[in-house]
Nucleic acid binder design. Structure first.
Ligand SMILES: [Mn+2]
Ligand SMILES: [Mn+2]
Ligand SMILES: [Mn+2]
Ligand SMILES: [Mn+2]
Lengths: 218, 218
DNA sequence: TATAAAAGTTAGATTAATCTAACTTTTATT
DNA sequence: AATAAAAGTTAGATTAATCTAACTTTTATA
């Protein structure tokens, strides 16, 4: 059985080598930065994970997850997102508070618990941030890919996910009464700095380009 | 912040030095046996816990929890029992399956989670085994103390708690349709071997002395 | 292409948690 | 009280996970 630490490495690798982080390959430094560790530390751990056949790489080369490694990482991600959903929907946590606790809960080892939790939550497809929750077979519901910034003027859309899950951003969204499912109409784009003027409910608000690049919509 | 391991030592000490285990004092060997470790290992850890002022003892002497140590142990126990209750009541686990998972969940660090869980469960006083759940202030609801074996003939009583939480016993109780709250009438006691004949619902059943010493009643 | 910068690796150290084997102190039994 | 047994401690080793400092390889750029 894997340690929490090993699971965290695999999860970080999954993140770094999938769409989310942009790139398809990950190196020692990327991992170290993502996990808040030193490259030397990561290098040691990678040797162990390679030994156990969870990752694959050659000296000085890029790192990829093996099938076994990816399966574990996906399962940890499944647990993380199910717990985040539980915390929000059942225990009334706000969406900026759940991540830290889910980081711990994702390591609880009990298949029965995971499956019962999934059932209790009525088999959700997305977590509170709009991220897809992997199914028991490892398949993922489709992830929204359209950025708010790419929506044409006068078009309407629905918030599907947040690309940035930092507390500051999530709390700002809260303040603007924007959440998953909120309808937004793009009114105007300012060429000068990329700002966008949106219609949200009865309110007209102006947001930055950075903001418009951090929201995914349908 | 304490490691899971340290929390387990403190919880074991709480158990060993309270009513439950009979004795009031605990030694290195007791602790080692209870935790499935070697005395040498426990000795090392005790030095660290003493250093951190969670336990108190002198060389070759008996060990006791300090106020700080006991507070932590009680809080871990609170979490353990709340999670067991959650697993049974909300996720439909049976009472012989919850302990193992609760052993993991009891170490999740989030006061907010604990308090929200308590609220969600409607502030339960007892866990699925009839053990009292400590309140946030550390106070415990009263624990049942009457053994089924001490109930007089022709007296009726209600099952309040199990003294033995092993799977075999819990599953046996299940099979006999006996759970917390079940009404039992003591019909007869066999002097030869201490067996007891009980009336449970419409059934008349005979149980061993060991059995009668493992159930607590009101 | 030569060299500097970035990325990755190795060596050596530290801390927590565990073990075995040997030793010391306390307690129980003759 | 003497001695045997039990309980507790110490010494020395191991493994996982981390670090710093120094070194090597790869990549970028002048
Ligand atoms: Mn984690
Ligand atoms: Mn999430
Ligand atoms: Mn535990
Ligand atoms: Mn219990």
């Amino acid at each position: 059985m894997l340690s929490n630490t090993e699971e965290n490495y695999l999860k970080a690798l999954l993140y770094l080598t999938t769409d989310e982080a942009g790139k398809k390959e990950a190196g020692t430094n990327d991992l170290a930065a993502h996990l808040g560790l030193k490259p030397a530390t990561v290098n040691d751990m990678l040797k162990r994970l390679k030994e156990k056949a969870y990752v694959s790489y050659k000296k000085y080369g890029k790192i990829t997850l093996t099938r076994a490694g990816r399966d574990i990482a996906v399962f940890v991600m499944r647990k993380h997102r199910l717990w985040e959903t539980f915390l929000c929907e059942v225990l009334a946590f706000s969406w900026d508070e759940v991540h830290e606790v889910a980081e711990q809960l994702e390591h609880i080892q009990s298949d029965k618990l995971t499956e019962r939790l999934d059932k209790f939550l009525n088999y959700p497809d997305y977590d509170p941030h709009g991220d897809p929750i992997p199914k028991p077979n490892g398949k993922m519901p489709p992830r929204a890919t359209t950025l708010l910034s790419s929506v044409a003027i006068q078009q309407s859309c629905t918030v599907a996910a947040v690309k940035d899950t930092s507390s500051v951003f999530l709390q700002y969204l809260e303040q603007l009464s924007i959440g998953i499912g909120t309808k937004i109409r793009v009114m105007e784009k300012i060429s000068f700095d990329g700002s966008v003027i949106l219609q949200v409910g009865k309110e007209k608000i102006t947001v930055s380009e950075k903001f418009a690049n951090s929201l995914l919509v349908d």
